[in-house]
Design a binder for these strands. Sequence first.
DNA 1: ACCGCACCCTGAGCGC
DNA 2: TGCGCTCAGGGTGCGG
Length: 291
Amino acid sequence: MPELPEVEITRQRIAPLLVGRRIAELVTTEPSYFFITPPEILRSALRGSILVGLERRGKYLLGSLEDGGQLLLHLGMTGQLFSSRARSVRLLTAAARSSLAPEEQGDFEPDRHTHLRFRFEDLGPEVYFRDVRKFGKVMLLAPGERHERIDRLGVDALEITGAALFRATRKRKTAIKALLLDQSVIAGVGNIYADEALFYAGVRPGRRAMAMSRKICEDIAREIRRVLLRSIETGGSSISDFIAPDGSDGRYQDERRVYARTGEPCHVCRTTIRRKLVAQRGTHYCPQCQS
DNA sequence: ACCGCACCCTGAGCGC
DNA sequence: TGCGCTCAGGGTGCGG
């Protein structure tokens, strides 16, 4: 689900509910692939503590604790971090959706996919982390403890420059799209925004990275920054599961040029948008506009 | 060092 | 209704 814009929207809008409120209790599901730190450790460590800040690194969220420790969250493919006051059809299975009209929904009730439930001493709105596929992650870092994956992240995608991208593409035989998805090169780009940025830059996703000229790298870097900023402006992409923490949808999906538009006409030239596999990911492009 | 691939998990949507 | 298949915005670890 979430790439840089969705993670950033989540950070901005969940921070007021998560930061500065003393945690009374953390309710969790059973140990699973989702928990890097075992749930019982999380529960005892977070009871009575306060998050004093929440920042984003690529697609990771990092909460700071009073003692200098950090709470690391990753939304994976289907992670949702939201208020207990949120209501959205995206929080329901298809079966539940059909039996319940949106106007009939009450506030969200935690289900078996709700792996974290923050309850606060002020008894105000709770914060939930729900993740159907469990590709998301939660981990507690002790004060001073490093996390290898975070340390290895490349430049944040909002700050990628043509020069940096050009350097990264040298001697890389892999597809340019695969390079854009490599978080150790650029942190935050995922499948949607890689396809969208390459469309605007006029570059076929399967072309080899090392074949990109300096000028093309400038174009790609500029389009990555522009597309991500525009998506943040519009609240992110709600294509399948993403909702903002208040339950509202983003609107960037309405501005998509290629992603998941297979068989539809290109908005620029009317040529049919094609789909193929690049780097084992569904990849969408206009055969006329991109070369 | 780099590359492609299998795998982690659950659900939706399709054709039959 | 159900079965079997493909697909899904994430990342990791392995062998070649």
